[in-house]
C-alpha cells in the first residue's frame, strides 16, 4: 500500500516541484525586467522570431480551423434550420477559444521547442556559463527577452488567426454552403462582443507567458549533452501544451 502511494505520489511531487521552480524563474525574470541595461534589440530579435516568423503557420492553421468549423457546424445547425447561426458560432469559437489555443499550440511547437533547444544547447556547451563569466546575467539576457516577446506577440498572432479563421469560415459558408452572406455577417455582429475578442487576446498573452517560460526553463536546466537537449525540447512542448489546456479552463471560468 505504502509502495503504491509512493509510486503514485512521486510524479505528483515532481510536477509540483517543477511548477515551483518555474515560478521561481518567473519571479527572477520579473526582477531582472526592471534593471538596466535594457537590450531592446535583443527583445526585437525575439519578437521577430516569435511573431513575424510564425505568421505562416498561424495563417494556415487559423484559416483551416475556421473552414472546418463552418463545415461541421453547418451540418449540425441544418437539422433544425439554424444555418444562419454558423457565422456567429464560428466567430465566437474562434475569438474565445480556438484562435488563442491553436495559435498557442502552434507557437509552442515552433517557438517553445526552439527556445528549449537553443537554451539547452547553450547550457550544455557552457555558453550560459560564458555569459555569467562575462558579467551578463543569463536570465536577463536570454530568458527575459523571450518571455516579453512571447507575451507581446501571441495576442497579435491570435488576432490574425481569429480574422483568417472567420474569413475562411465565411468562404466555406457563403461560397460553398450557400449561406446568405448578409445574414452570416449580421449574426456575427449581433452575437459576438468586443469582450469575446479581448478576453481571447488576454488568454493568448497568458499562453505566451506559459510557453516561453516553460521553454526557457527546460532549456536552462538542461543536463546531459545532446541527448539532454532533445529530452528538454520534447518535455517543454508536452508540459507547455498541458499547462495551456489547464490554464485555458481556469481562464475561461474566470473570464466568461
Amino acid at each position: 500500500m505504502i509502495r503504491f502511494l509512493e509510486f503514485a505520489g512521486r510524479p505528483l511531487v515532481f510536477f509540483i516541484e517543477e511548477c515551483g521552480r518555474i515560478m521561481l524563474l518567473l519571479l527572477s525574470t520579473i526582477s531582472w525586467m526592471f534593471r538596466p541595461p535594457f537590450r531592446f534589440r535583443v527583445i526585437f530579435k525575439q519578437m521577430e522570431f516569435v511573431g513575424v516568423n510564425s505568421v505562416g503557420v498561424v495563417l494556415i492553421t487559423g484559416a483551416f480551423t475556421g473552414m472546418v468549423l463552418a463545415l461541421q457546424t453547418y451540418h449540425g445547425f441544418k437539422m433544425f434550420g439554424g444555418e444562419s447561426l454558423v457565422g456567429s458560432t464560428l466567430a465566437l469559437a474562434m475569438t474565445r477559444e480556438l484562435g488563442p489555443v491553436f495559435t498557442a499550440l502552434m507557437v509552442t511547437g515552433r517557438v517553445g521547442s526552439a527556445m528549449a533547444a537553443e537554451l539547452g544547447t547553450m547550457k550544455v556547451t557552457e555558453q550560459i556559463d560564458a555569459l555569467n563569466t562575462m558579467s551578463v546575467n543569463p536570465i536577463q539576457y536570454l530568458v527575459m527577452p523571450r518571455i516579453i516577446a512571447a507575451i507581446l506577440m501571441l495576442p497579435v498572432l491570435t488576432i490574425i488567426s481569429d480574422f483568417v479563421g472567420i474569413v475562411g469560415g465565411y468562404f466555406v459558408g457563403v461560397n460553398l454552403l450557400k449561406i446568405n452572406s448578409g445574414i452570416f455577417i449580421a449574426k456575427i455582429i449581433d452575437i459576438v462582443d468586443l469582450d469575446d475578442i479581448f478576453n481571447g487576446l488576454i488568454k493568448a498573452a497568458f499562453f505566451g507567458l506559459i510557453l516561453s517560460l516553460v521553454g526557457c526553463y527546460k532549456g536552462i536546466y538542461t543536463i546531459g549533452g545532446a541527448e539532454g537537449v532533445g529530452r528538454a525540447t520534447t518535455q517543454s512542448v508536452v508540459l507547455s501544451s498541458i499547462l495551456i489546456f489547464i490554464s485555458d479552463y481556469f481562464l475561461t471560468a474566470v473570464m466568461f
Binding site: T121, T125, Q127, D129, A130, T133, S135
Partner: peptide, 15 residues
C-alpha cells in the same frame, strides 16, 4: 568578474 576572461573547454562561442 569584469577583471576576468575565461576560455571554456569547447570555447563556448555563441553560435
Amino acid at each position: 568578474r569584469k577583471k576576468f576572461g575565461m576560455l571554456f573547454q569547447d570555447a563556448a562561442l555563441f553560435d
